[in-house]
Nucleic acid binder design. Structure first.
Lengths: 194, 194
DNA sequence: TATGAGATAGACAGGTCTGTATCATTTAGG
DNA sequence: CCTAAATGATACAGACCTGTCTATCTCATA
């Protein structure tokens, strides 16, 4: 195993440790010292890989966005119809909400702490949220006309974000159930009332 | 004007100044020194009214929740039907999203920074969000059976929270438009497909 | 006018923050 | 084995944080 591979592994380990702490305690509330202590690396190692905390945050967000994107790929690949794909996304969120250590969405949290347009963290959040919305729209455009798909994608996106917040407040079960019923009703009316 | 009235005014002035800074810059990112400088009061004045920053935060949130509740009262009082009341709430949010200095929802931000159940800030957020959801449910129960009203209230709540986040990301117009269309479709299907 | 409560400005303590510097140690490859 | 890069441990600088304390000022009321 070469030095370069070790360095890459260490870099990734720092990112994943920071992700866990950022998600649980918040961005400002998590200090560099806590991250390196939890990751078991020296401070200079961290600063060699990431020139500042802000750069580390953006790297954590970008890694997590890519991780989520790949998870969706694997989740949706074996699912045939668009409707079933939407249901699969709901299922995934339901499992997430009930997973141990669930503490809300790091992208939402980051938007709260760095909510100024143009800031690197804001833009990283914007990229991820836009990608999720676009993904929903791509699925829906397989069965709905473009404008309808866009509105429906916005709606599903807002429902998912709202459900994530409700889950953080301890009402994930109820949120997912309502989200499912609403999506069913909308798909039903889209079929019948078009 | 008595000393007591002066003190109450000063206390309220601190709360409103802190609200503005917390909303714009975040909770951890806003220091006591910045609050008192912006409010033009001495540090001891602030600590006489609020024994700690955490207590100040909770007071800001509770004041803002009450302020929002009163705004809704005034907004909905002259509106006759439940459907029109829902539309009025959408209208209010649309105006909010476009108001100068809109920077997302302070309650969402606070949940991101103090997201641990049991924490005083978490509980303050929980109270406000639950109150909004309950209010939506009360409106809907005037025309829908209880269980349907509950699901619909959850849905509208999630849409509103998601729309607020999208507005923070600069897509408020689109979010409100989709929210309106979805609510119309749901009300229509509720009437026709029950 | 005398009094006493509230406000002010500012220093201060003790801790934490980000980021830098130093020096010893480990480790992979020639 | 030897070298050079990477890391570990730790001290440090300078800024900022919350919260306390003091000394002075203002002002309504008794």
């Amino acid at each position: 195993m070469s030095l370069r591979a070790d360095a890459a592994e260490k870099r990734q380990h720092i990112i994943e440790t920071a992700y866990r702490l950022f998600k649980r305690d918040g961005l400002h509330a998590t200090g560099i010292d806590k991250i390196i202590a939890e990751a078991g690396v020296a401070k200079m190692t961290m600063y060699r890989h990431f020139p500042s905390k802000e750069v580390l945050i953006v790297n954590v967000l970008d890694w997590r966005a890519e991780h989520f994107r790949r998870q969706l790929d694997m989740l949706l690949e074996p699912v045939a119809t668009p409707d079933e794909q939407i249901v699969a996304i709901f299922d995934w969120h339901e499992r997430w909400f009930e997973s141990p250590g669930f503490h809300g969405c790091l992208f939402q949290h980051s938007l709260a702490e760095y909510g100024t347009p143009g800031h690197a963290v804001f833009e990283a959040v914007s990229r991820q949220k836009h990608a999720l919305k676009q993904r929903l729209q791509d699925i829906l455009e397989q069965t709905l006309p473009e404008e309808r798909a866009a509105v429906f994608a916005n709606t599903l996106f807002m429902l998912i974000e709202g459900a994530t917040m409700l889950a953080h407040l301890g009402q994930g079960k109820m949120a997912v159930a309502s989200m499912r019923k609403t999506a069913s009703a909308l798909l039903f009316s889209a079929d019948r009332l078009q």
